[in-house]
Computed example of a mutant assay.
Amino acid sequence: MALRAIRVLGESGDASLRKKCREVTKMTPRIRDLIDDMFDTMYDAQGVGLAAPQVGVLRRVVVIDIGDGPIVLINPEIIEREGEQREYEGCLSVPGKSAYVIRPQRVVFRAYDEEMNQFESEAEGLLARAVCHELDHLDGVMYVDKLDGPLLNNDEIFLEEELEDEEETKAE
């Protein structure tokens, strides 16, 4: 469909990133267009998830694709959390930056699909991280509010990983 501008934290027009979103009460052509546009925008930006407030729409809509196919979550909520994972996390609304964030290893969530049928599903690992990250956006929470360490430029992280790889190679 169309690409939408991704709101960036700290720039003009980013107020939608810090607001709580309204529920979707019925599927409309506008919501369907929003979902299509969000996928186009997310794929174009090479992201794995996008929440409606990131494109300036204060509705509880999330799209995710970690490489296993597209997922649409409307009015999602996490109903169970288990375990813990600490990994680098980034965000299309905080470009070029990443930091460690602690998230659940596994979540069970409830949401509606594009036909407004309610369902429950579970997610582990990266998908659990993506679900938690995107659902936070729906409540005006950004991953930078949950850092477990410094916010780094992605270049610094890649350099750190390259140095670790070199040390491992030397040790072998």
Rank of each mutant, 00 (worst) to 15 (best):
M38N: 01
R22S: 15
H133I: 03
F39M: 08
S16H: 06
E80N: 11
E80D: 13
L34T: 03
E168T: 10
V57G: 06
D33C: 04
V94Q: 00
D145I: 08
Q85N: 15
I6W: 10
I71R: 12
A5N: 13
R60Q: 15
E84K: 15
K97D: 02
V131H: 01
L163D: 09
L138F: 06
G69A: 06
I79S: 06
V48L: 15
G67E: 12
T41R: 01
I6E: 05
R103P: 01
G47C: 13
Y143N: 03
I66T: 11
E124W: 09
N117L: 11
L159C: 04
Q105G: 11
E84R: 05
P76C: 04
V131A: 02
Y100K: 15
A51W: 04
C132D: 06
E23F: 06
F158H: 15
G83H: 02
Q54M: 09
S121T: 03
G49P: 14
V144Y: 06
K170Y: 13
C91Y: 12
G69Y: 08
E114R: 09
M1T: 12
I74H: 05
V94K: 03
G69S: 05
G47L: 04
H137M: 06
K26T: 04
S98F: 01
E161N: 14
L151N: 11
N117K: 08
E23M: 07
I71D: 04
V8L: 07
P53R: 00
D165G: 13
R22K: 13
D14G: 05
G83I: 07
N154G: 12
Y112Q: 09
M27E: 07
M27A: 06
Y88E: 03
V131M: 00
I78Q: 02
R129L: 12
E172F: 11
Y143G: 09
Q54E: 06
L58A: 00
A111R: 00
E82M: 03
T41E: 03
G49W: 02
G149N: 14
T28Q: 09
I102A: 11
G149T: 13
D33T: 10
V94I: 15
L127S: 09
V48T: 12
Y112C: 10
L135I: 15
P95L: 11
F158R: 14
V48P: 06
M27V: 13
V101W: 03
L163V: 10
K97H: 03
E11S: 09
E114M: 08
Q46M: 10
E82T: 09
A45R: 11
E89V: 05
I31M: 02
K20S: 14
E162P: 14
A45Q: 02
A123V: 05
K20W: 08
C21M: 05
I66F: 01
K19H: 13
G149L: 07
K20I: 15
T28L: 07
R60C: 00
A15V: 14
M116D: 10
T28I: 07
D14C: 12
E115K: 12
A45W: 06
V61Q: 03
I35W: 04
V101E: 03
R81L: 10
